[in-house]
Design a protein around this nucleic acid. Sequence first.
DNA 1: CCGCCTCCTTAACCTGCATCAATCTAATTT
DNA 2: AAATTAGATTGATGCAGGTTAAGGAGGCGG
Lengths: 235, 235
Amino acid sequence: MWRSDAETTARHLQYQYEVGTATGIRCGKYLVPRKKAEIQRLDNTLQHHIAQYITLSNSEFSRCMTYFLPKKLRKRSFLVQEGDVCSYAAFVQKGCLRSYTIDSKGDEHVLQFAIEGWWIGDLYSFLTGEPTSYFIEALEDSELLLLDRKAYEQLTEDIPKFERFFRLLLQNNLIATQRRIIAEHSKSAVERYLDFLKTYPSIAEHVPLRHIASYLGITPEALSRIRRELAEKSL
Amino acid sequence: MWRSDAETTARHLQYQYEVGTATGIRCGKYLVPRKKAEIQRLDNTLQHHIAQYITLSNSEFSRCMTYFLPKKLRKRSFLVQEGDVCSYAAFVQKGCLRSYTIDSKGDEHVLQFAIEGWWIGDLYSFLTGEPTSYFIEALEDSELLLLDRKAYEQLTEDIPKFERFFRLLLQNNLIATQRRIIAEHSKSAVERYLDFLKTYPSIAEHVPLRHIASYLGITPEALSRIRRELAEKSL
DNA sequence: CCGCCTCCTTAACCTGCATCAATCTAATTT
DNA sequence: AAATTAGATTGATGCAGGTTAAGGAGGCGG
C-alpha cells in the first residue's frame, strides 16, 4: 500500500494519490450532456483513486457512482464561499482548485490545493452543517464529483468498505498536515519552497506563484526573491 | 454533539474532549497492582471520553476495555523514541505527555501535548509499521491505556461502532491541525500565545514554557519577552 | 494592435523574532 | 543546607522576511 519513494509517499499522504494525466477528451461548452467516452474517463479517474485504498467489484463501483453529482466549475468561480454551508466533499476530475480563508486584516491564506484525483471541501462545515470560513475557488475550468452529506452516509451504509476508505483519506491528510506544521517550524522559506516543488510538481505547474507563497506562509515578494536567488545559484 | 462556545469547541476539536479533574486516588509506587477503586476511576475517564462520540452498552464497554493495556510512565521517560516503531495509540488516564521531533540542526519541535482524556501516538508509524521520527515523552508521572495495532483491528471488528469513533477523532484532529496552520500564517506570536492559553488552559498549567514556545513555533526567549509585555500591559 | 488586466519582479526600508551569552530562580539531589 | 541542574529571564546584535511602491511582461477582449 505504501510505495517507498519519498515523493510518491508524500503525495499519497497529502491528498491520496495523483493519478496520471487525463487522455484529453474535452468538451467546449458547459452544461452540454457529456459523451459516453467522457463519462468513462471521468469514472476511471475516481475508480483508479478508490482502488488505491479499497477493492471494489464492478457492480459496487457503479453503485457507488450513483451517489455522486457531477458539477462543472468555471475558472474564478466558487464551490463555496465564507458563510455558506459546505454541503459537499468534492472529488476533482479535472482542473484545479484552492481553499483559503481571509483573515481580519483582509489577507488570504491558502489551506489547500486540489488537482485531478484529489479531494477538496471544508470538512468541519460538511460534518457539522455550520457555515464555513473558507472560500473554495476554481483556478481553472474544473470538473468535480460532489458527494453531499446524505449521499455520504448512504454510501457508507450501502458499501461499508467506504468507512475504511474515508478513514484512510483522513489519516493520510492528518499525517501530511502535521508534517506541514513541523516543516514550517524547522525549515526556512527556501527549503519549504523546494520541498513543495519536489512533492507537488504538478500543482506547481498549475498554480499562480502568489498562491504558492500564501500556502507556504510567505509573501509573493519573498517568494520572488527566493526564486531569483535559486536561479542565480544554478547558473 | 458540538457545543457552541468557542473554547469547548476548540478543545473538543483538538484531541477530543478534556474530562474533569480526577478525584485524586494515587499509588506511590510503580508496578504495584492497582486497587479496585482506582481501576474504576481509570475506566471512567475512558468511558466518559468514548461517550462523547458513540453510545456503548455496559457490556460493550467492558469488552472494549479488554483490548487496552495499562501502562505507567515515569516523568522524563519515553513511550517511543525516534527510530522505534510506535506500536500503540495511547489514551492518557493521568499525567501529561508531549510528542516532538528533533530536526537536522538538533532543535526540538513539539507537535502535540496530551493530558488526561487525550490521545497521543504517531499515527503514521502506528498504521504503517515504519519507524517513527517522533519522541513521545512523559512530562509528569503518567498512566496510559495502550491500544496496539492488532487490538485496534480486533476492537473495530468486535464493536464496529469504534470505526466511527476513531474516524471522529481523526476528523476533529485534522480540523484542529488545519486551523493551527492558518493561525500560524495569520496571527502574531502574541496572539497565538493568548489563543493557546484560552484554548488549552489546563495544558498551560502543566507544561514548561519552553515546550509551549516550541509548540507555537518561537524560541523560549521570545515567549519570555511576550509574557513580560503582557504583564506590563495588564498592570 | 492597442489598452487593460493579472501576475511577477525589483528595490529600499523596516520589524519581529532568532541568536548568543549572561544572569537569576527554583527545583532536585546529596 | 549546600551543590547541582533545569528552567526562565534579560540584554545586545543580526537577519529573514514583511511592507511599500514602482515597474515590467504576458494574455485577452475590443
